[in-house]
Design a protein around this nucleic acid. Structure first.
Length: 317
DNA sequence: CATCAGGGCCCTG
DNA sequence: CAGGGCCCTGAT
């Protein structure tokens, strides 16, 4: 295990309103040892430009006067240029600069969602993972329930992940693609990941041919096309990757189990994906993606703090 | 105890 | 485009 020391510290000021906790933690994500969250604090492993860092965020402001202390841990010095690029990348992944004011102004008084928007005002989208990490996670999620996903994740990390220690916390990082590419498929299969063994290897191989940063410049349909070329990425994963890794605000279909949630929250008496979509389109237009995001955040946080009975059957943990 | 649906993707027909 | 196969969990 690598013990990292504090190398750099800086306070940054996200675009207000910014709610720290809602913008760095999503209770609907399955638990992994890649990240640790406590109210007002976030620790995570971060591979950037071939260096594996430990990063800690501390909330140092308020929703209307936001400030985040960023501390970087590493085992060596970091150049000015590297740190500059790193901060830029963190700003991208955590949407520090994103302005949601128009959205709030428009729907704050909405009968159905106004209350939720007020409660979650200042929630920015975020995705800690880069394309490679997210690809691996997408494969871990496919055809599996949470329990199985967690078990597969831990055995993969235990065997190929990198362990770091900083600020008193132990975390893993997803293995480097170059590390996994040479592992025989049979060895992976012993970890009870099933046919995913092949997907990990082929997706890794495909990834090594890609330029994630160039892909950010593609439009939605070009990007989708490129992502679908990656072995193991299909219509379900591609949406999550586009939303997470590439910050695209898309909402094409609603998975069957989620339709049950939204029909309830939006007081609709239908669970038809198409009808819910039409309703969202008509009432919220281009903001329908954000509306769903806020509604989903609301029930996820409620569920985290106090189990919701009717949700228990839908959310597996 | 044994079946078998379900979940997301690839591949074949 | 439809449908079988992959792999395991959990419901029947």
């Amino acid at each position: 295990m690598e013990k990292l020391k504090l190398i750099f510290s800086k306070i940054i000021y996200p675009k207000a309103p910014y709610n720290f906790d809602y913008s760095v933690h999503n209770p609907s994500h399955y638990p992994t040892p890649l990240v640790k969250y406590e109210k007002g604090k976030l620790w995570f492993s971060f591979r950037f430009g071939d260096k594996l860092l430990g990063i800690k965020f501390t909330n140092s402001g308020s929703i209307n006067k936001p400030a985040v202390k960023i501390q970087i841990y590493y085992n060596d010095e970091l150049s000015k240029d590297y740190l500059k690029e790193l901060l830029k990348e963190l700003s991208y992944r955590f949407q520090f600069e994103k302005d949601y004011s128009e959205f709030y102004k428009k729907f704050e008084k909405d009968v159905l969602v106004g209350k939720v928007l007020k409660k979650f005002k200042g929630m920015h989208g975020f995705c800690i993972e880069g394309l490679y990490e997210y690809l691996m996670i997408a494969i871990l999620l496919q055809n599996a329930n949470i329990k199985r996903t967690v078990q597969m994740t831990n055995s993969m990390l235990g065997n190929y992940g990198d362990k770091i220690n900083f600020d008193g916390v132990n975390l893993f990082a997803i293995w480097k693609p170059e590390r996994l590419i040479n592992v025989p498929e049979e060895e992976l299969r012993k970890l009870k990941v099933g046919y995913r063994a092949k997907s990990f290897l082929r997706a890794t191989k495909d990834f090594l041919e890609l330029d994630e940063f160039a892909m950010r410049k593609l439009n939605d349909s070009e990007l989708r096309k490129e992502l679908l070329k990656i072995y193991g990425v299909g219509p379900a994963s591609v949406d999550y990757i586009m939303i997470g890794v590439f910050n695209r605000e898309i909402l094409n279909t609603i998975p069957p189990w989620e339709t049950k949630i939204y029909s309830k929250l939006l007081k609709l008496n239908t669970t038809s994906s198409q009808r819910i979509m039409n309703f969202l389109d008509k009432n919220y237009g281009k903001y329908r993606f954000n509306i769903i995001g806020y509604l989903f955040a609301d029930i996820s946080w409620k569920h985290k703090l106090k189990r919701i009975n009717w949700l228990e059957k839908l959310l597996p943990y």
